[in-house]
Simulated assay, not measured.
Amino acid sequence: MQRRVIAAPVAVLGDMLDRLAGPNDTLWPDDEPLWLDRPLGAGATGGHGSMRYTVTAYQPGLRVRFEFPAGSPLAGFHELWVRAITHERAEMVHILVAQPRGAMLLLWPLADRWVHQALIAELLDNAERAATGRVRRPARRSLWVQLLHTVRPARAAETVR
């Protein structure tokens, strides 16, 4: 689980969540664009890089759940949600509940986990920046993640929709 408390009303973060994978998406990092076959909503399918999933739950302004399809290298789901803490502070949370399968049994602990965590940290930076105009403690890619990004070309180029 990764989370960030942001000095903004839940409606501001919820609006960003609702624009996920759309033309005005301010959350998703540019390295590996998130795409969906239709507007964000239950039943939309898409992914980023070579990872695929389906939106199985969507509560506008609050929560979206993506489930990995049968045969995917991960079995399970991930969610992004927001919740109010006060009228002027909210929290954005990402959870991943999944079991690696096949080659991902090796790739997840060695590489993909670290790249995924960096991607979500950058997403949370994007949320804070868009909501407040700055990031108090910006995420920094570890040397390992930087190396993985250099030896593993951007998956966006590999994406076949």
Rank of each mutant, 00 (worst) to 15 (best):
M1D: 12
M1T: 15
Q2A: 15
R3W: 01
R4W: 03
R4D: 00
I6C: 03
A7K: 11
V12P: 03
V12D: 08
L17P: 00
R19K: 15
R19Y: 01
L20M: 14
A21N: 03
P23Y: 10
P23C: 09
P33Q: 09
D37M: 02
L40G: 04
G41N: 06
A42M: 05
G43F: 01
G46T: 01
M51Y: 12
Y53A: 06
Y53F: 13
T54A: 07
T54L: 01
V55C: 13
T56R: 15
A57D: 05
G61Q: 02
F66I: 01
P69A: 10
P69Y: 09
A70C: 02
A70Q: 07
S72I: 06
S72H: 10
L74R: 04
A75I: 03
A75G: 01
G76Q: 04
G76H: 03
F77Q: 03
H78Y: 01
H78E: 10
E79A: 08
E79H: 01
W81Y: 09
W81K: 02
T86I: 09
T86N: 05
E91H: 10
E91P: 04
M92S: 05
Q99P: 07
Q99F: 09
G102K: 08
L105A: 07
W108G: 12
W108I: 06
P109H: 10
P109S: 12
A111R: 11
W114P: 02
W114R: 00
H116Y: 07
A118W: 01
I120L: 09
E122V: 14
E122M: 08
D125T: 10
A127T: 01
E128Q: 11
A131D: 09
G133F: 02
R134T: 15
V135T: 15
A139R: 07
A139M: 04
R140N: 05
L143H: 15
L147R: 13
L148V: 05
H149K: 09
V151S: 06
A157D: 05
T159P: 00
